[in-house]
Nucleic acid binder design. Structure first.
Lengths: 218, 218
DNA sequence: ATAGATAAGTTATCAATGATAAGTTATCAA
DNA sequence: TTGATAACTTATCATTGATAACTTATCTAT
């Protein structure tokens, strides 16, 4: 049964093209994480979808968590893009804050796994830090900092709001914390308890939005 | 090396005393979940700590998740006690809501590990729902309803508030969700990122308290 | 061309884990 | 004292993340 023994379309990458395989892995991992969640996604299924053996993934990623973290940064980069977009297209400082909250909440609900990982935390077995692995390909973009960046942007927006003459009930960073905590509460709740009969999503997002903005304005 | 062959202090429970073993398991599981997290806690380690074999746990719990759920309800129960206490001692409807939020936040910050376990829901593998297991001992207290209970209480408080003549911006259950999400956002943030330079705790709690109450009142 | 170096990938295998099957032993009621 | 059964045990699975050790394709320098 060795029909067509040669030219069997080996998926092997040429020299120097390993990074494309790395991106194929990320793509497959992303699909599976989103389809079935992090825990339910196995290394083998990712490898199957890519079309390589399971250990091949370890040529490009330290471990399973590293794949998720890489995806997180990739995805959070898009959120930061959106925020930058808002800053570039919206001039009114208060409207900027509003749009930030909206983009943030929507992003969280569209990417629950990434959101959980970065903002809800500790989902991944980080406690067991192993040593002595290899991880031959060192990726330049250190993962795991996307979350703090987003928050920093919100603080900046609220400082601008205050600088524009709007009186706040708290210092800008406290306002940012309260705004973020409120919206985060909505997103975290809906992500972590999706089976609970929450009220309408849009109503809750807009409601919290209104509440925190009313609450920080003097 | 069979010294003292008899009367070897078998840990075996007498007939009808199985429920005490169940509680021993819960205690051990709780300790380990809090020490090392859900994923890092193995069935075998729980069994070791209790002093029984691993499969013995399956006499009392359907699976690992069921232990977690039972612990969740246990903790929810303690919070519900406090809420009942407030209902019995405070008569003013708005003050009741305020006290609810205060008790809730304080409960979370006084028991950060348990709060994390219950409300942040570290890592319950919700996606993979299995079927066809056995679970021979049917425990009377069906797990997994504690969260709904807390909300029911808060909804009731807000319904009473509305009934007392106070106009709300949203239906009582939506108000309850928004209130809870706001306070939860504060507690969850401070618990999960304790190293972050948050503003003053009391300020944030009181601030969010004020914000959500102002926000739901017309 | 071709031999050495090495990127890219394989097969075989681990230990750990959640869970089940099937057998054992202590306890109690009749 | 016996039969039922609650309360276990030992043995065993399949699956999982991860590693070791080997193979093969591709590029470079001679």
């Amino acid at each position: 049964m060795a029909a067509l023994s040669t030219a069997v379309a080996s998926g092997r990458k040429k020299r120097g093209e390993g990074h494309t395989r790395r991106e194929e892995i990320l793509q497959a991992a992303k699909e599976l994480f989103l389809e079935e969640g992090y825990n339910a996604t196995t290394i083998r299924r990712i490898a199957d979808r890519v079309g390589v053996s399971a250990p091949a993934l370890y040529l490009y990623f330290h471990d399973k968590e590293a794949m998720m973290l890489a995806l997180c940064d990739q995805t959070f980069g898009r959120l930061i893009e959106r925020i930058t977009d808002i800053e570039n297209t919206v001039s009114d400082p208060l409207e900027r804050v509003r749009r930030f909250g909206d983009a943030y909440a929507r992003f969280g609900l569209e990417h629950p796994d990434e959101y959980r990982l970065v903002f809800i935390g500790n989902n991944i077995p980080e406690s067991v830090r192993k040593v002595g692995h290899r991880m031959p390909i060192d990726d330049p973009t250190r993962p795991g900092v996307g979350g703090a960046l987003v928050f920093t942007r919100l603080v900046a927006l609220l400082s601008q709001l205050e600088a524009s003459g709007v009186k706040l009930n708290y210092p800008p960073d406290t306002c940012a914390e309260l705004c973020w905590m409120g919206i985060h509460g909505v997103v975290a709740a809906m992500i972590m308890k999706p089976e609970f009969p929450w009220s309408n999503r849009e109503l809750l997002i807009k409601g919290m939005q209104d509440i925190v903005i009313r609450g920080i304005l003097k």
